[in-house]
Computed example of a mutant assay.
Amino acid sequence: MNIFQQSGLAIVLGMLSISAFGQTAQGSLGATSSGAMKVEVEVKDQIQVTAIDSIDLTYNAADTGGLTGSTEFCVYVNGSGEYTMKVGTAGGGAYKLAGAASGNTDEIIYTVKVAGAASGNGAAGSLAAVTWDTSSTTYKGYNTRDCSSNDNAKIEISITDQELREATTDDYAQTVAVVVTPS
């Protein structure tokens, strides 16, 4: 056996002994010494919502029909992983806009629809209704944190004409939380 074959055999045997000791090996006393260790990296889920805007609507006396408004935004998931979306309200409760004026107890009920991308780095697909604090279907996230300026998710709210006509003149609002969770 030549020197290269012996060295190769020694390296293979050394690797086997490293594996047998849980990927670590301590060096021995001598002119030189070497040890071995295992290196591990655990990548946890990472997800981020960016570029989400408020939805501002105005209803005038001359308007007929309901109102609909939406916002498009970016959902990043490391590795273009999958996620679900949950749309809840600050403090809990249903989708109801509350009047700002003192003494106004009117509420305007609205519905929410969401959409996300069906494939990695894709555009938001078809909107689907969601109920308060219930997870949506599964969507695919974008693999860059700003979605390369191509939004991949959307939320739409709708208010019926009847809800608007029955409301007292006022400014109505509710804070809505969009929670995206890796799946």
Rank of each mutant, 00 (worst) to 15 (best):
A51D: 13
D45T: 03
T32N: 15
G35N: 11
Y83G: 07
G65L: 13
C147N: 09
D106W: 14
Q46S: 07
S19A: 10
G69M: 06
K96M: 04
I52R: 12
Y110P: 04
P182A: 02
A25G: 03
E40A: 12
T168N: 08
G125L: 08
I47Q: 00
F4N: 07
S148M: 09
S17P: 01
S33Q: 15
T137C: 08
S126R: 14
E82K: 00
Q48T: 05
N143S: 12
V130E: 06
G30K: 08
N121T: 05
T181W: 00
M85H: 06
Y95D: 00
L67S: 15
G66W: 03
S80N: 10
G92H: 02
V43F: 15
A115H: 14
G141S: 06
D171S: 05
V112W: 10
E166K: 14
L67N: 09
L57M: 11
D171A: 02
Y172V: 05
A101Q: 15
M1V: 11
G116S: 10
E40T: 14
C147T: 07
C147I: 01
A94Q: 14
S183F: 04
G122R: 08
I47E: 01
S102Q: 14
T181S: 07
T64H: 15
A90P: 00
F21K: 12
Y83C: 05
L13F: 00
G79K: 10
G81W: 02
V87A: 11
A10C: 00
Q48S: 10
Y95I: 09
V87H: 09
I108F: 11
K86T: 09
Q48D: 11
A61S: 14
G103M: 04
V12F: 02
N104C: 05
K113Q: 15
N78Q: 14
V12H: 00
G69W: 04
G103V: 07
S136Y: 07
G30W: 11
V114Y: 01
S54V: 03
T105R: 13
G81Q: 05
V130Y: 02
L13A: 03
M1N: 08
A118K: 07
Y142L: 00
